[in-house]
């Protein structure tokens, strides 16, 4: 039995230890935000955050993840209370078919957590592993910039209140 920490909760996993995390999230835990795209770690749709880094859940067996902190899109906010990155994607209408967006959001979130002042160049470089066939790239870029501004304001706010 594998135990994983997902979005702050400890979960016991029945699947065999070599099962990719993506299958466990979707089939066992009904966390359906991460998407199955290629199954090869080449499209980015399945991206989640592990210990602060964006990783492909479709090629990461759960046996490597015990004792580590896993965040999925569900961990950033809900439809009723979306997080800043999710609000920014809604505001910029950055999704068309939306299949790639959960992965894009997770990698962008990991980047901004690490570097709140990420430049356009570094955002583009960072999102290179993610494919979007609808072509909403410019909106995705705007959404990430908007989220970065909002997150910066929030930190500044918290600092002045302290």
């Amino acid at each position: 039995m594998t135990t994983l920490t997902i979005n702050g909760e400890s979960r016991s996993i029945k699947a065999s230890p070599d099962t990719p995390l993506l299958y466990v999230l979707r089939d066992e835990l009904a966390l359906n935000a991460a998407k199955y795209g290629c199954g090869l770690g080449q499209c980015g749709a399945c991206t989640v955050i592990v210990d602060g880094k964006a990783i492909f859940s479709c090629i990461t067996p759960v046996m490597l993840l015990e004792g580590r902190t896993i965040t999925t899109l569900e961990g950033l906010g809900s439809p009723d209370a979306p997080g800043p990155m999710q609000r920014a994607f809604l505001a910029e209408q950055a999704a068309q078919c939306g299949y790639c967006i959960p992965g894009m959001i997770m990698r962008a979130q990991a980047l901004l957590n690490r570097d709140p002042h990420a430049t356009d160049e570094s955002i583009k470089g960072e999102l290179q592993p993610h494919l979007c066939r609808c072509g909403t790239h410019m909106r995705i870029l705007r959404a990430i910039r908007r989220a970065a501004e909002e997150m910066k304001l929030k930190t500044a706010d918290a600092r002045t209140r302290r």
Binding site: T119, E121, S122, K124, G125, E126, Q128, H137, M138, L141
Partner: peptide
Amino acid sequence: TKSKRFGEGP
């Protein structure tokens, strides 16, 4: 150097 190699995207 990633931005050097991948900086020409959309």
